[in-house]
Amino acid sequence: MSEKTMLEVRDLTMHFMLNKSKNLKVHAVDGISFAIPRGKTLGLVGESGCGKSTCARTIIRIYDPTDGKIFLDGQDITRLSQKELKPLRKKMQMIFQDPYASLNARMVVRDIIAEPLLAHGIIHSKKEAGEYVYPMLERVGLTREHADRYAHEFSGGQRQRIGIARALILQPELVICDEPISALDVSIQAQVVNLLKDYQEEKGISYLFIAHDLSMVRYVSDQVGVMYLGQMAELCEAEEIYRKPLHPYTQGLLGSIPIPNPKLAREKVTSGIQGDIPSPVNPPEGCRFCPRCPYAKPVCSRETPRLKEVSPGHQVACHLY
């Protein structure tokens, strides 16, 4: 692990027990590994229910991981207690998917943004909050006057920027963005993504950017990881994955991006993925994608493919390579 690695995850596994006696478990995340260098962004994409959000929540330790290791800035945080974690939370913050549910409707914006400051003893009463809150509000494109408003008075985009302000006020080194734009209009998405990018350039922070929108991920990320049913299917440089997708699942995903030009769309080979995502309670044997894979071979349903490097910086978990 180099000095410059901000976050490293090794074989992270998160199973949720459904029924102890029958040993039924949801295999939400099953052995995921990746590393995010300082100042870089890793985009994590995949269908709904593939374990992206669980992955994010396990990394920020809302859940206790079943197995694997999480290193934040070189420190193992996998088994730290909530109390031991508290000082580290300053380094790692999260932006949530739903701008309506992630802000407390009974609090004014000032108090929402000041909560991390109070929790970490940076300020000791709400009266001191203005000094920190006003510049942050202006940073995310809101004004001082908004500080005394309740969250429910804002639009979705404004609310998401309040959520971002809350995450950034502690000046974290790593921000986990759990689908921060998927609940927003396209016009507002750009606004939020640009805000995040500008801030990254300014402060050199790292992002783990989760989305199911591939075109937006391409714009923000340095590296892209494609998840399928709790496992990493492909991991490589952002441009590479668009230029040369290797895993059949990635190819399918890319085939499903709508193209705004109708003439181009007609020429495009429609290679959408058939079928539904299998249940994570009872994942298929071998390669998890094999029941839906057009190139499946007999080996695919027997052996689980390991993530291997097929070209420099390009890892893929598929028996075809």
Binding site: I62, L85, K86, Q93, M94, S102, L118, A119
Partner: peptide, 24 residues
């Protein structure tokens, strides 16, 4: 999510109960 957010912030249980849960 706002309670989960409060946990990731590192707010103590007292704050979560008195500021988030009870008022709501």
């Amino acid at each position: 999510e706002f309670v989960v957010a409060s946990k990731t912030i590192g707010s103590p249980t007292k704050t979560i109960l008195t500021q988030h849960l009870i008022p709501n």
